[in-house]
Design a protein around this nucleic acid. Structure first.
Length: 164
DNA sequence: GCCAACGTTGGC
DNA sequence: GCCAACGTTGGC
């Protein structure tokens, strides 16, 4: 007996975006509400995209480095990975002169925004006992992409159904 | 602007 | 391979 006939386990992620760069509204306004997730320049986050994320995975769209950091929307992974073109663009803030064109260091994937939610602030996340283990809330966590447990996803969608 | 925490770089 | 210095992240 194998699990090959079963659907893959659902996976969930939190992805940080600076709303000045790409807010949930910006993503929803994009063609097909889909944006290429450029600018990931951390190997661990890249590896999550490359090795862990699958089309259809749930995404918590998180606004960071802004007056009101927190979860601002729900999205989904909409593609597999491909090289991030901004690494080769000298005019881009994400330019990486050390990335060989024939062996690109940095990848991106497409993220499709599904809906804007009320903002679940960082303070609210921190004050929710069921979310105390969330990777993004751990001390010193700086990763722009972090895995989310199914129980954490369920807790957040419950919170949204109650107040949203 | 501050600063804690983390990742990367490079000399040795 | 060690580790100090440096750069970045991101909340406050």
């Amino acid at each position: 007996m194998t699990t090959s006939t079963l659907a893959p386990a659902p996976r969930y992620w939190l992805m940080k975006s600076e709303p000045d760069e790409c807010s949930i509204d910006d993503a929803l306004a994009a063609p097909n509400a889909t944006v290429p997730w450029t600018g990931v320049r951390n190997y661990q986050a890249r590896n999550f995209m490359r090795d862990g994320m699958q089309v259809g995975d749930g995404v918590l769209f998180y606004h960071s480095s802004c007056p009101e950091p927190g979860i601002a929307g729900i999205a989904r992974v909409a593609s597999g990975t491909r090289p991030d073109p901004t690494q080769f663009d000298p005019a881009s803030p994400y330019f990486d002169p050390k990335s060989p064109t024939d062996a690109p260091r940095w990848l991106l994937l497409d993220v499709q925004a599904l809906r804007k939610t009320r903002l679940i602030s960082l303070a609210e996340l921190r004050s929710t006992p069921l979310l105390s283990q969330m990777r993004v809330l751990q001390k010193g966590s700086r990763l722009s992409i972090t895995p989310v447990e199914e129980s954490e996803w369920a807790c957040i969608t419950d919170v949204l159904m109650r107040g949203d």
